[in-house]
């Protein structure tokens, strides 16, 4: 781990949900422009690690420093604002608002930041073009395939040009071909904007799109560059 120059550093994270320990001293760091895969068996705590890193869930203890600022000292409102403007998210399920059209979905984070509808949708369309789903702009999520939906979700995650993109099993529901396409587009787009990508996956072929991987086991993380 090379904390100097890191954008996001977490040390000794602990988090329990009731009696279940999800994180037990996990460490993490990521540089701008880096794609880090978080791997591990299901239930190992990788999603919790992502939620903590993204400031969605506060850890029970440990520190998370984003861009030089300790997240624990931020209010919920500040963390929300951070998520809106600096972070992007792609999940496996349930992320597209079914009643909004695709372009409206993609434009949503911009609109939450106060961008006018017209401008937001223009930017959104640009990103959809990059992810090759611009032709679906006026359709609703219910009318498109899973792979297309995931690309729309990636466009939405990138539309604010986030500095960190959090992806939790982004290809979990997709077949190999679609999954790869989504990963290719996602990493390409992230690299082009120098965004860091935290990629939670249990699939090696998805993790192969990363620069580096860490493995989470029983709530402990293991940085694979330090092994041996």
């Amino acid at each position: 781990m090379t904390p100097t120059g890191s954008l996001l550093i977490a040390t000794d994270l602990r988090k329990a949900y009731g009696p279940t320990t999800a994180l037990d001293g996990a460490e993490f760091s990521i540089h701008p422009g880096e794609v880090v895969a978080v791997m591990g068996p299901s239930g190992s705590g990788k999603s919790t690690l992502l939620h903590c890193l993204a400031g969605i869930v506060p850890p029970d203890s440990g520190s998370i420093i984003y861009n030089g600022r300790e997240m624990a000292t931020m209010s919920d409102t500040e963390r929300s604002a951070l998520r809106r403007s600096e972070f992007g998210f792609v999940f496996q399920f349930g992320q597209l608002v079914p009643e909004l059209t695709c372009v409206e979905n993609v434009a949503l984070p911009l609109r939450l930041n106060g961008t006018s509808r017209k401008e937001a949708e223009k930017t959104a369309l640009g990103w959809m073009q990059r992810l090759e789903v611009d032709d679906l702009a006026r359709k609703r999520p219910g009318e498109i395939s899973g792979g297309q939906g995931q690309r729309v979700a990636v466009s939405r995650a990138l539309v604010t040009s986030p500095r960190v993109l959090f992806a939790d099993e982004p290809t979990g529901a997709l077949d190999s071909l679609n999954g790869e396409r989504v990963m290719e587009l996602l990493t390409e787009a992230a690299r082009s904007t120098n965004a860091a990508v935290v990629l939670v996956t249990h699939e090696a072929r998805v993790a192969a799109y990363s620069d580096r991987e860490i493995v989470v086991r029983d709530g402990k993380s293991r940085d694979m560059e330090r092994v041996v």
Binding site: S80, F89, Q95, L112
Partner: peptide, 16 residues
């Protein structure tokens, strides 16, 4: 529920 949580995750204000 899940959709609401996802919306909150990417920073939607509760007020909204």
């Amino acid at each position: 529920k899940k959709l609401l949580s996802a919306l909150v995750a990417f920073g939607t204000r509760r007020r909204t």
